[in-house]
Design a protein around this nucleic acid. Structure first.
Lengths: 202, 202
DNA sequence: TGTACATCAGTGAACGCGCGTTCACTGATGTAC
DNA sequence: TGTACATCAGTGAACGCGCGTTCACTGATGTAC
């Protein structure tokens, strides 16, 4: 195990940051929160396991903070994709595309955020609250599309679920099934979004 | 730990069956293959852990057999739903509905079969081969719908992916997110299938 | 029918492993005089 | 400027745990004579 030079008085946050980065790297390598151990993180940073407890009360809290940052990335990606897009239908298409692309570019983040099932209690709350806000933005766009007469007069909330399920379905299948003979990803993304949106057009 | 009476000479299969049933029950309770230990299975059956090795070479093989039976149930449910349905569009709708219902009624089976990510090597092969056959049946129906002029002239294989992703998306979201304020499941299933199929109609 | 024996399903103890977390401690860093 | 001291980031050893798997064994079951 490589020794690291001890932090100066004010530099406690440096190790804290390194711990989060190491945890992130290991999560990417193993693909599962359970498979990343406190000991492995400490080893990666070059520190003994108890040192982590100077910065995090326990393992759950450590991963909770990691999730928090993942979710910010995710929400940011969606926002970037739809910023200054007025047409709600176009906005939904771009959000859907950005959603799937984020999942494919950050499969481990996506897995933790949306496919991890149980998860630890604090994680769940976070994902649910922040995720719910993202979802409601989607519902708003659906309502707008209905009001403008571009969509059939569907109920906005359940229709939001249809769209979410559609993009989540493609993203999670692609992440999970490595060996399936997938057609070109670009084609799949386009088909998925065009078909689903197409089913809603007036 | 409750003692069980030792099996008669020819009754080795009885314990074997009990082991599979206990493993299944524990999988349903914990929701994850990793969380079910050899020791817990043995305990549930009323036998010591090494006894399991009389019937299975290792833990992976045990769960592989479990998966195998799950997949038979799944494929059977799809077949039952589409038997003697001639119209390919109707067949696709029924298969989609049966798919989602199977997932919701057997969330642990579904999780193991389609959401478990890595999984053990033998499991993967099985799911991929048997799953691929189910998928190709779906693709056939799509092609038939195109040939009959009921669907737009889409490519059958990538369109099969759209349909699969759509039902998988709803099923896996419902299984994963217990706390989301889901509208009525019946509504969600209907919307998901009608919208996606609707996007393909000629 | 009665007894000696072979079979083999299941046992009990142990293996080495990695885990999250605790606790008393050390020793470089910074401070007060 | 030099020295004694307080701080506190990080250490080393240990805790109790559950895991999959192994191995020599036991003892009821069934068989051969």
């Amino acid at each position: 195990m490589a020794r690291r030079t001890r932090a100066r008085r004010g530099e406690g946050d440096k190790l804290r940051q390194e711990i989060l980065e190491a945890a992130h790297a290991l999560l990417v390598e193993t693909g599962s929160q359970d498979a990343v151990s406190i000991r492995a993180i400490a080893d990666r940073v070059g520190v003994t396991p108890p040192a982590l407890y100077m910065h995090f009360p326990d393992k759950d809290q450590l991963f909770f903070e990691l999730c928090e940052s993942y979710f910010q990335n995710f929400a940011g990606a969606l926002e970037d994709a739809t910023r200054s897009v007025d047409d709600p239908v176009e906005s939904l298409k771009r959000a859907g595309e950005a959603y799937i692309r984020f999942a494919l570019e950050n499969p481990e983040h996506y897995r933790v955020l949306f496919m991890s099932g149980g998860g630890t209690p604090p994680d769940r709350e976070l994902t649910e609250l922040a995720g719910f806000r993202c979802f409601m933005a989607l519902v708003e766009q659906v309502q707008k599309a209905v009001d403008l007469g571009k969509f059939r007069p569907v109920e906005a909330f359940p229709t939001g679920v249809v769209l979410w399920a559609s993009v989540h379905g493609l993203a999670s299948l692609l992440i999970t099934d490595d060996h399936f003979p997938w057609p070109a990803v670009e084609t799949l993304i386009r088909n998925q979004i065009e078909t689903t949106i197409g089913g809603l057009l007036a």
